[in-house]
Design a protein around this nucleic acid. Structure first.
Length: 123
DNA sequence: ACCTTGACATTGG
DNA sequence: GCCAATGCCAAGG
């Protein structure tokens, strides 16, 4: 992971903006997978790009990067790492249960109404 | 059957 | 060419 740019320039890859917007739609208390965000952003198969994009998200946008997990619910960072602990703490603050570096998707995965989401994303 | 954990092939900045 | 904010699958419980 790298430091976020303040919010001066560097929009990064053109698709980053879409990824940030989609991630912004995840409600508090819910989580999504990198692949899910990629799909909803019109970027099927680009899960890794989502991880990159979140790392570059301008702090000013307040993108809830911590609500995005691996497809099986595990936190992507190494268990016990500083990043993993931070993510765990942020999730717990909104009542998402994290055990052994993992969230039970059965209980917390975001299931957006596609039509509504598409509408909100287009402005 | 269902859930966890560990390993790794692939992808893309 | 390097490296990782993934997904997937196999093994074990």
């Amino acid at each position: 992971m790298q430091e976020n740019n303040q919010n001066t320039k560097n929009t990064g890859h053109p698709s980053y903006a879409r990824i940030w917007q989609t991630t912004l739609q995840i409600p508090s208390g819910k989580v999504a997978s990198y692949g899910q965000i990629a799909d909803l952003s019109g970027l099927p198969g680009r899960a890794r790009m989502v991880g990159k994009a979140l790392g570059y998200a301008p702090k000013a946008l307040q993108v809830p990067w911590y609500r995005v997990l691996r497809s099986d619910g595990r936190i992507a960072f190494s268990p016990g790492s500083e990043h993993a602990l931070l993510q765990t703490g942020l999730l717990q603050e909104e009542n998402v249960v994290v055990l052994n570096n993992r969230v039970k998707l059965k209980m917390f995965q975001w299931q957006p109404d596609l039509a509504e989401l598409l509408f909100k994303l287009q402005h």
